[in-house]
Design a binder for these strands. Sequence first.
DNA 1: CCCGTTAGTGATTAGCCACTAACTTACTTT
DNA 2: AAAGTAAGTTAGTGGCTAATCACTAACGGG
Lengths: 171, 171
Amino acid sequence: MVRMSAEERRESVIRAAISEFGRGGYHGTSTEAIARRVGVSQPYLFRLFPGKQAIFLAAATRCLSETRRMLEEAIDPDDPHMSMAAAYKELIKDRDMLFMQMQVYVAVAAMEEEFGTEIRKVWEDWWDSMHLLLGADVHETTFFMSYGMLINTLVSLGFPPDHRVWSNFAP
Amino acid sequence: MVRMSAEERRESVIRAAISEFGRGGYHGTSTEAIARRVGVSQPYLFRLFPGKQAIFLAAATRCLSETRRMLEEAIDPDDPHMSMAAAYKELIKDRDMLFMQMQVYVAVAAMEEEFGTEIRKVWEDWWDSMHLLLGADVHETTFFMSYGMLINTLVSLGFPPDHRVWSNFAP
DNA sequence: CCCGTTAGTGATTAGCCACTAACTTACTTT
DNA sequence: AAAGTAAGTTAGTGGCTAATCACTAACGGG
């Protein structure tokens, strides 16, 4: 048994939660499954977090801000178009994170009052950050985020990279 | 009590399922809830469909092909860009359908083997149809579908129409 | 080395949910 | 009107799950 500080454990829980919720969604994931992945008993999660919703919310915000951070690092403001491809390629690598992103969107749709306000804020910040990086051009920003969302969809649906629906992304 | 033919009932079930699954997702929706909305006892669903998965799959394919049909009707091949806005506006009206679309994507991600093959086929057909309508220009098609997926996201997240993340869509 | 604090567990429970079996009600056909 | 068939119900079961409670093991400071 490895003892950790509560803060470190919470960190592990968030990472595990991103993977588990990413696959099963909010309702399809049991706290048991998360606990198992962390390597800790299920009741202990409720000492680290007030409830399942809190775990999901922590994982959700982490997922979005982490994704944002990766994009910020990958984009070159001097040549946004060229660096965009590289940025997306980076994102696609982490399937768990990408699935979780989609789960966040549907979770907000389903549980507006629980998650809406907080998640919108994080997403908004992300949008603003991209907006600045891309030269504060609304068309450019919308274009960029659109592509991201389509990629999310294509990955979620499991289309192989050589499928024609991808044809615009690998020239 | 209103008696219907099994076929008519199945139709009602599919419509109810789109609404219910759209909100709760696969795991967050009980067959009880669907039955209640249809106005029928819960066990009877299992006479109309072999199981919950079958209901979801029927609702999922219906949702995608219905969405496709609406777009096909709304797009004017002579002026795709102008008609696109109108097409999307039409789609956004039916929140249940839009939410269901998102739920389909995450459901495929989570349950590849159950839904993957069938859903990919329907989506592929949709993509091909748009591709033709838009003059078989890969850039144009990708652009179009991208915008659609971003709109899905923004609606799911519940951003009000006057929010800046929408600024590119209401010129 | 002891004792307060912090990390962690085992057992349990109330509620929910997909699915089954056995039965009833209503329409149709002859 | 009887018999057959298709639409629908009531009652029930086994499995799972979020959350609680009472408890134990390990660390660290004086």
